[in-house]
Design a protein around this nucleic acid. Structure first.
Length: 820
RNA sequence: GGGCGGGUGGUGGAAUGGUAUACACGGCGGACUUAAAAUCCGCUGCCUUAACCGGCUUGCGGGUUCGAAUCCCGCCCCGCCUACCA
């Protein structure tokens, strides 16, 4: 009997699949429904594929294979998001070109993908650093530019001093750069911006039309941070200060104003006497790091400007202060402080002995909840809910304010001061300003240079390459300079799913007929960490493209799921510095790709963070050896037992039992696959194998007169295994004599009649405690069930001397006697 | 501080109102072996017991229900995201 050697059969079938283009998706095929399965493409780092990648792509592969077997025209593509700093840094360190580093890394990734046996249509592979690809990234950028959604602004941006580049707000976490952990500084630079805030409402609304888990949708909604409130104007002589509040109902309780240190009116407001103090405070705030300023635990600090305004309801005098707990970047950069009803204002008022006036009835001051208004003049007695619009309307009628909606979302800082990114296709002309590079001159390619180290002055290394920078203005032909900032690494990934539909097109980013055919991504799988970055950015790009008539669907992804993180065996995150990283290639070399895939699906629900375990993987892989052994026995004629007298009848009854087991498993894993419950699907297959390898079962299967049963039992087992462990399934499939690949064979349908149980186990409870189990006909009536239960000796014993006060009968399931 | 998850054996986990602990790992015992590995068989929540029986058990406390891991209320703990966002 031949032995299971995954290291032999896996490369063999991988080659056959590749040679026959088995997994090619067919554009425009209307004979089958389409299914677009997308997984986030990797950043091809020098470290190669890790366990987290493998989990994501294995899940995607199982779904793709299951759908393909069900007759869908499946698109399961792959590519590389290869622009970015890690490659640039690696190249600088090793004194090679980032282009060459990328080629090496991509080749390594490709090899690893193939070793895992993924059913990817490699003909559609994309690479964001390929000029044929980024030509279209630049072209799409220019659509934003032409609509005024890509614009330049001089602003204080988040600056990473380690990587010497500007960052988007989404890339700053707790004042640290999310990638390298360096404290972020502020730097004033002229930056390219994308107007994502114009799409804030659309990005919220669109979530109602797609199937995202609430934790993803909620996180995006939170990040966009829409809030409804009012802007209120206060005046000091001729200076107008506009504040934003979500609580206009507390206006009468506003006892002072607070401005952010960066507020433009600070200088104009400050009185001569206070000038020195104010300047000192503002300068100190500027020096303070972002982390220090964001620390909510430190005591409130501030300085008085010397200026006063007055409360529009009470007419009380309100001093105007400056404090760094008010953020320049949100709302209007100024607030009305209501210390009785806001914790922060309360703390500030206490520190500087400012008045505290309660105007909402409710809990102890500071009370941030809602309630009835008091000491609020004409608004007394209203609830907060009614007072909010009433106060807003009154302010509007007085010309003192208006309703306003604010967002936490900021426009997207789109400039990076680095070499290894898409050049922003703009030319600066002294006469014409910022001019788009004409479409027929795209792509603007990166110059081939030897030095591309980032600089401290906030300029891209491209700025030093004079013969690249100097060019002619496309509009007037005069001397002009190229934009030297490049795009962030999020640019190429914002539209790559569209390119897969038509990845070799040199006339358009994708052909419209193909875009129409493939439509939305049916299921998009990726990391939770991209929820407010890539996922949000690409939805924004897509919505804009939809408005421009470039794409047929308003949303890019019909459904999104996030896979859980694979932790190291020690329960910590895998990291090179901790030396606890699992390399899929090592596992494959030892156990085979099928064992790796099986374990990664079985270890936990797909969206759960869970630790890796070599031991468990080794144990799980035993399943494959058992499958192999059973299959060999069922295939090889030498193991067939002679039929003995009287077995014909037994085989008939047994065949029903065996078929029922097969079809029950089939039903379970079919539904489990659809719901991404791979761990329980694998369990079901293990239980089924346990049944098939029981001594009694196996002996009957091997009877000479069980040929048909033996054949269909094995055939269905292999088909069920195919999406999960494609290599062993293919090998066994061919061994049974089947022509063609198992991976394009039809997924078997379960027979609903066959899996109906005639006999069911009914549980008998007394006061909710299980006391007996009865095997009963499924059709048994309540009366029959009750009678049978009462006749059971165990039940009789327990009922001795008790009175039954109530009997609950759930047909086919249980009987509960309530006794006294 | 806010939002979202979660808490079940030694471990990963199963069960979403009806037999809690499926499946698997690990452990223990046995078979095979000169031996080990591999493989196969049996046992494996806790307490009590020689065993059967019995009792207890899903973070803690209460509630709803004939019946709760599951639903409701309060609390504790853990994880992720977010954060002086007015």
């Amino acid at each position: 009997m031949n032995k299971y050697h995954p290291q032999d059969i896996e490369p063999k079938w991988q080659k056959t699949w590749a040679d026959t283009h088995l997994y090619a998706a067919k554009d425009g095929d209307t004979t089958r429904p389409k299914y677009y399965m997308l997984t986030e493409f990797p950043y091809p780092s020098g470290d190669g594929l890790h366990a987290g990648h493998a989990r994501e792509y294995t899940i995607g592969d199982v779904i793709a294979r299951h759908k393909r077997m069900q007759g869908y025209n499946v698109l399961y593509p792959m590519g590389y998001d290869a622009f970015g700093l890690p490659t640039e840094n690696y190249a600088i360190k090793h004194k090679i070109r980032p282009q060459d580093a990328t080629v090496q890394n991509v080749a390594n990734f490709r090899k690893q993908f193939e070793a895992l046996g993924y059913s990817i249509d490699w003909a559609r592979e994309v690479n964001t650093t390929d000029p044929d690809y980024y030509k279209w990234t630049q072209w799409l950028f220019l659509r934003f530019f032409k609509e005024g959604l890509a614009y330049q602004a001089e602003m204080a941006i988040n600056w990473c001093p380690m990587e010497k580049t500007g960052l988007a707000n989404e890339e700053v976490v707790n004042g640290l750069h999310e990638r390298c952990g360096t404290p972020v500084e502020k730097k004033l630079l002229k930056q390219w911006m994308l107007g994502i805030t114009k799409y804030a409402d659309r990005l919220i609304e669109g979530l109602k039309t797609v199937d995202y888990p609430s934790r993803i949708a909620d996180q995006q909604i939170n990040w966009i941070g829409r809030s409804e409130g009012a802007e209120i104007d206060f005046t000091v002589q001729d200076v107008k200060i506009t504040v934003y509040t979500t609580r206009p109902d507390t206006l009468a309780g506003a006892t002072f104003l607070v401005l952010a240190p960066e507020h433009p009116a600070v200088a104009a407001l400050t009185t001569k006497e206070q000038r020195a103090d104010v300047e000192k405070y503002v300068a100190a705030a500027q020096r303070e790091s972002e982390i220090a300023r964001q620390n909510t635990d430190r005591p409130k600090t501030g300085v008085f400007t010397g200026a006063y305004t007055k409360n529009p309801i009470t007419g009380e005098k309100m001093p105007i202060w400056i404090a760094d707990y008010v953020l320049a970047g949100y709302g209007t950069g100024a607030i009305m402080a209501v210390p009785a009803h806001d914790d922060r204002d309360y703390e500030f008022a206490k520190t500087f002995s400012l008045p505290i006036e309660r105007v909402i009835m409710g809990g102890d001051v500071p009370y941030a909840g809602e309630g009835l208004l008091t000491d609020s003049g004409q608004f007394d007695g209203l609830t907060s809910a009614k007072a909010k619009p009433a106060v807003t309307k009154w302010l509007y009628d007085q010309g003192l304010g208006r309703g306003a909606t604010k967002y936490k979302l900021r426009d997207w800082i789109f400039s990076r001061q680095h070499y290894w990114g898409e050049p922003i296709p703009i030319v600066h002309c002294a006469k014409c300003g910022a001019v788009a590079v004409p479409d027929d001159q795209l792509p603007v390619t990166l110059p081939d240079v030897t030095h591309y180290e980032p600089t401290d002055d906030g300029k891209s290394p491209l700025a030093a390459i004079k013969d690249w920078v100097d060019t002619a203005c496309p509009k007037c032909g005069g001397p002009a300079q190229r934009e030297t900032d490049t795009m962030p690494n999020w640019a190429g990934s914002s539209w790559y799913y569209l390119r897969y539909m038509d990845s070799r097109n040199d006339q358009a980013f994708a052909d419209r007929a193909k875009l129409d055919y493939w439509g939305s991504v049916d299921l998009y799988l990726g990391g939770m960490e991209h929820t407010t970055l890539h996922l949000l950015y690409s939805r924004f790009w897509h919505q804009f493209f939809y408005d421009q008539g470039l794409v047929p669907t308003p949303e890019p992804y019909a459904a999104r799921r996030g896979q859980g993180i694979v932790l190291a065996a020690d329960g910590r995150k895998m990291s090179k510095s901790l030396g606890n990283v699992i390399n899929p290639i090592d596992i494959i070399a030892r156990y085979g790709a099928d064992a790796f895939r099986l374990y990664i699906l079985f270890m936990a629900p797909y969206d759960e963070t869970t630790p890796w375990s070599d031991e468990r993987l080794g144990g799980t892989s035993r399943f494959l050896y058992r499958v192999w052994t059973l299959a060999q026995e069922l295939i090889e004629p030498s193991t067939i037992l002679p039929g003995s007298v009287g077995y014909e009848d037994q085989i008939g009854a047994f065949a029903v039992e065996a078929d029922r087991a097969t079809h029950k498993t089939l039903k379970k894993i079919h539904h489990d696959f659809d719901e991404l419950r791979f761990n329980t699907a694998v369990s079901a297959l293990m239980e089924h194998l346990n049944f098939l390898t029981q001594a009694g079962t196996k002996r009957r299967l091997l009877q000479a007169n069980a040929t048909d049963l033996r054949r269909r039992t094995l055939r269905t087992l292999i088909l069920m295994l195919a999406p999960i462990v494609p290599h062993i399934a293919e090998e066994l499939w061919r061994q049974t004599g089947e022509e063609g690949s198992v991976h394009v064979a039809a997924w078997p349908q379960y027979d609903p009649e066959l899996i109906k149980d005639n006999v069911v186990t009914v549980v008998v409870q007394i006061n909710g405690k299980v006391r007996a189990q009865l095997a009963m006909p499924a059709a048994a009536t309540e009366a029959e069930l009750t009678a049978a239960a009462r006749a059971d000796p165990k039940i009789t014993a327990h009922l001795e001397g008790k009175t039954i006060t109530k009997t609950i009968v759930v047909p086919r399931k249980l009987i509960n006697f309530v006794v006294r």
